[in-house]
């Protein structure tokens, strides 16, 4: 016991300041991409040809679908004109699938729930996590939010053991055919009103498995999705930012917003 206390004292308090300050991200971290189509050479499709998941369309202008993106930077590496750059910005969650298609330097981030749902979930959100073909990296970076370093409990967010206890589902993975029924039943077992959050390229658009006949290509083919959090896997800060934004817990005056 004394030893546990001594170790606790030595290791100290380690919950991060976020959202009172920006999260600490490595310098090589790839955040939201910023596009500058005006730099494109005529008839150049080098980026689109390099992309492993067909996230880029360079036929008319230049667009990058964050929902499909694996953040591998294959596109920016082949671009002769630096038309695609990576900002370190971790904030990327959106409320609609279309909003994930980046055309320039902007991204329309997720709006908060309406007043009624915010009253219900704003200060207490219980989520059931469903891994449906997830590779365990998205799952791990969701799990990490419950550790002392991130401590999502301080926002009233908790991952619970049963869909019956949940206000919504947090789904990872491309939803293999073999998990479709499991996902559907878990959704049905969750009482209404309920939220669905798709975390990662797989849950949004099939990720690296898009187009395989063994998968259904993401959560939206089976259940309606309220929040899309891109990445492969999304950084925990990206996931947390999305959740807080959805709950209306981040405002323009928060330090991370200014």
């Amino acid at each position: 016991m004394i030893r546990a206390l001594r170790e606790r004292w030595r290791q100290g308090h380690r919950t991060m300041a976020y959202p009172a300050g920006a999260p600490v991200l490595p310098d090589r971290h790839l955040g939201r991409p910023a596009l500058d189509p005006s730099r494109c050479l005529p008839d150049c499709h080098a980026c689109a040809e390099a992309c492993p998941t067909a996230a880029i369309d360079a036929t008319a202008g230049l667009t990058l679908d964050l929902g499909r993106c694996l953040f591998c930077a294959a596109c920016s590496q082949v671009c002769p004109r630096a038309a695609i750059a990576w900002t370190g910005d971790w904030r990327m969650a959106t409320r609609s699938r279309e909003a994930l298609v980046v055309k320039d330097r902007e991204l329309e981030l997720a709006e908060a729930l309406d007043a009624r749902l915010r009253r219900l979930f704003g200060r207490s959100l219980k989520l059931r996590q469903v891994s449906a073909g997830g590779c365990n990296a998205c799952e791990a970076d969701v799990n990490v939010l419950s550790t002392i370093g991130w401590d999502i409990g301080r926002f009233g967010i908790q991952i619970v053991a049963s869909p019956r206890h949940a206000d919504g589902l947090l789904i990872t993975g491309p939803v293999p055919e073999n998990m479709r029924l499991g996902l559907e039943k878990t959704w049905q077992a969750t009482p209404s009103p309920k939220l669905v959050i798709a975390v990662g390229a797989c849950a949004i658009a099939g990720g690296p498995f898009a187009g395989h006949p063994e998968v259904t290509g993401g959560a939206a083919a089976t259940v309606p999705v309220d929040l899309f959090i891109p990445g492969c896997p999304p950084h925990p800060a990206t996931i947390l930012d999305g959740l807080l934004r959805l709950l209306g817990r981040l405002s323009a005056t928060d330090p991370v917003e200014s």
Partner: peptide, 17 residues
């Protein structure tokens, strides 16, 4: 439940995916 058909998708490669 996690079967995503990876081995089959690798046939014909290596490619960008």
């Amino acid at each position: 439940y996690q079967h995503r058909g990876v081995e089959r998708a690798l046939v014909g490669g290596p490619d960008r995916r």
